[in-house]
């Protein structure tokens, strides 16, 4: 990690006095531009976060009970529930982000071609994204219903056994490999079928968002570049690899960062899809991501442990922050800005 001082002052290193002055006047101007956003974000984000940090240093169920310093953090490091939910979160991110990005890039490129009915297709692909996650989860819960669900109907049509979907805590790798007659231990079972059902809903809903951003990114690429490449006789694959993909990299980078953050703090959909069946995050906590764990700990339906939950939230935040910085450092550097 770079030192804070370097980050702060690297711009002024080696500037002439005049340039320095311009730098400071620009700084003033920049903060004027930033003022409205800062006011809102400080009031409704920074302050609550500081407050939450203070809560995390206390034994705090509903009200403050006593100051315990870093004790909540220390206990969390040995809390198997936290690590288990972090694993679920990682599965969830791995199972949603790459697929949603790849599929939406593919669709965006298809839609960017000169074809009839683009508007209709774009609208249709985008529709899931404007639907509230809660409504979508209600609908998907119904689609995946073990008894009356239409997915099980389709499975039966093509000759498969119906599945339990959101009720199934068994890992999908385990289910798959055991069908082939292999014995798989629990720990190697992979994400549960229930989590996979949630992932499917997430991908369905994320595609439209990614696609729109990708379409905007595609629109930013100069047409002349394509024409020049075609005149040179480049294949479409070469065009994609040498022009489209590199020039889309700021878009991809943006989507990657945002998608990872979103998947790490995803809550509404998972909650709405799993809560009608025992505690949210079921079955057997196999869909309990860190945010669901935090929620269950902080409010759930009773016995709130807000101090402990706040500490877990800061651990989550640290994990995501590190992930984001890593992305900025190692992926961000490969991003091609025109």
């Amino acid at each position: 990690m770079p030192k804070l001082g370097d980050l702060l002052f690297k711009d002024t290193v080696g500037l002439t006095p005049g340039a320095k002055r311009r730098y400071w006047s620009e700084t003033l101007a920049a903060y004027l531009y930033l003022l409205p956003a800062i006011l809102i974000i400080v009031t409704f984000h920074f302050f609550p976060i500081f407050y939450a940090f203070f809560i995390s240093l206390n034994k705090w169920s509903i009200l403050q009970e006593r100051f315990v310093g870093l004790q909540n953090y220390a206990r969390l490091l040995w809390d198997p529930d936290l690590w288990n939910s972090l694993l679920v979160t990682i599965w969830y991110a791995l199972g949603t982000v790459p697929f949603a990005l790849a599929i939406s890039l593919f669709i965006a490129i298809l839609l960017f071609q000169n074809i009839q009915g683009r508007g209709i297709f774009r609208t249709v692909y985008f529709l899931p994204n404007i639907t509230s996650v809660v409504a979508a989860a209600v609908v998907w819960g119904w689609v995946f219903n073990a008894q009356y669900g239409v997915i099980n109907y389709f499975l039966e049509l093509i000759g498969f056994q119906p599945l339990q979907w959101i009720l199934e805590p068994t890992g999908v790798f385990k289910m798959f490999l055991e069908n082939l007659g292999l014995n798989v231990p629990e720990w190697a079972g992979g994400p549960s079928l229930a989590l996979v059902a949630v992932m499917i809903m997430t991908i369905w809903s994320a595609i439209g968002f990614n696609m729109i951003i990708y379409l905007a990114g595609l629109g930013n690429i100069s047409k002349e570049l394509y024409e020049a490449a075609r005149i040179d006789g480049a294949t479409e694959w070469q065009v994609f690899r040498k022009i489209t993909f590199p020039l889309l990299s700021p878009t991809t980078f943006f989507l990657l960062v945002v998608s990872v953050i979103r998947s790490f703090r995803a809550f509404d959909g998972i909650y709405a899809m799993t809560t009608r069946n025992g505690p949210a995050g079921g079955p057997l906590n196999t869909t309990r991501t860190v945010t669901v764990y935090i929620y269950n700990t902080a409010f759930g339906a009773g016995n709130p442990k807000m101090g402990y939950a706040a500490a877990a939230a800061f651990i989550l935040m640290a994990v995501v922050l590190i992930l984001t910085i890593v992305q900025f450092r190692y992926v961000g550097e490969k991003v091609h800005y025109e």
């Binding site: 805590p169 505690p279 079921g282 057997l284 906590n285 759930g300 339906a301 016995n303």
Partner: peptide
């Protein structure tokens, strides 16, 4: 009593693990 809300979750988890054969 306080804490019983957690017990509900644990009892339900136990039932789920029996039903799922875990």
């Amino acid at each position: 009593v306080r804490g019983w809300q957690d017990a509900r979750t644990f009892l339900e988890d136990a039932l789920q693990s029996v039903i799922s054969g875990k």
